[in-house]
């Protein structure tokens, strides 16, 4: 059950020019969040910014937890100055989280840019199943979490838009190559379906492509979506997305949706 609670800042570490990792300690016990779930967080007690902002779980530390964020607007540019001891009000954990697939299937994780924030949480929780991770970013300095992933035994396949790390190009193209090889070398296209589950988070164009890819290879895929939201609890209807089953709320029925459900 989600709660309204306060957390004290333990650490707020700058990772790159625009990326920060904040560690929070809830002042009252909260339920362990699932990877893919999120928190609504007030970066300040003033009126501007007014609304809480959604941040997905990056890492659960058995009581404390971490959020990975990019300074993109007013709220995150205030958040970056929060220091140990500062107290922030939040609501959570919210949303559905990534569904665990059958234990025999392989796991493919795809993250674009800050999409690694929730995908890392999932990677950590399924690390014993040896997931394959495809990680795309604009450039070398935006490729996050590589060390932490290595310590989980995960060596991601990396692409960058400018080729400054890994292969130059889109991460989804690398995924297509991988799936094509799988299909042609060992399995007919239709069989890939049972072999892998795909979980992805990233910018909209990437997720749209993920819907196309999972359809093409007949794979079961899950996408973590993001939309502007005011309440986070299903009341304001700001964050709706169009699905094959009508409008759904990213905050309540999501943020994770089956890839085939989203109408792009």
């Amino acid at each position: 059950m989600s709660k309204l609670f306060r957390s004290s800042v333990r650490e707020n570490r700058k990772l790159t020019t625009d990326h920060y990792l904040i560690t929070l300690r809830p002042l009252k016990k909260i339920r362990k969040p699932k990877p893919g779930q999120f928190f609504m967080l007030s970066v300040d007690s003033g009126l501007d910014p007014l609304l809480k902002r959604p941040f997905s779980l990056h890492r659960w530390l058995g009581g404390d937890f971490q959020l990975l964020y990019e300074t993109v607007g007013k709220a995150t540019n205030i958040l970056k100055y929060k220091a140990p001891g500062n107290v922030l009000e939040m609501i959570g954990p919210l949303g559905n989280g990534f569904p665990a697939g059958p234990s025999k299937t392989g796991i493919l994780l795809v993250a674009g840019g800050l999409g690694i924030a929730p995908v890392f949480a999932l990677a950590e929780s399924v690390s014993s199943r040896r997931p394959l991770l495809f990680l795309g970013a604009k450039s070398r300095k935006e490729v996050l979490c590589i060390e932490k992933l290595r310590s989980l035994g995960i060596r991601p396949t990396v692409t960058t838009d400018d080729g400054s790390l890994g292969k130059k190009g889109l991460i989804t193209d690398i995924l297509i190559d991988f799936l094509s090889r799988q299909s042609s070398t060992c399995l007919p296209v239709g069989k890939v379906v049972n072999r892998y589950r795909v979980y992805a988070c990233g910018p909209k164009p990437m997720l749209r492509e993920m819907s196309r890819i999972t359809k093409k290879f007949r794979l079961k895929g899950y996408l973590a979506l993001e939309e502007n939201m005011a309440c986070g609890v299903g009341a304001c209807l700001s964050c709706v997305v169009n699905t094959t089953d009508g409008l759904k709320r990213v905050c309540k029925e999501g943020p994770v949706f089956p890839a085939e459900e989203i109408i792009w």
Binding site: L50, C236, S238
Partner: peptide, 23 residues
């Protein structure tokens, strides 16, 4: 009612603009 397409809200100083469209 379906309401309006997203983006449906945007925050403004000490307030917010919404166009949910009575979904």
């Amino acid at each position: 009612k379906q309401g309006n397409p997203p983006t449906r809200i945007v925050e403004t100083p000490a307030g917010m603009l919404n166009a949910i469209g009575l979904q």
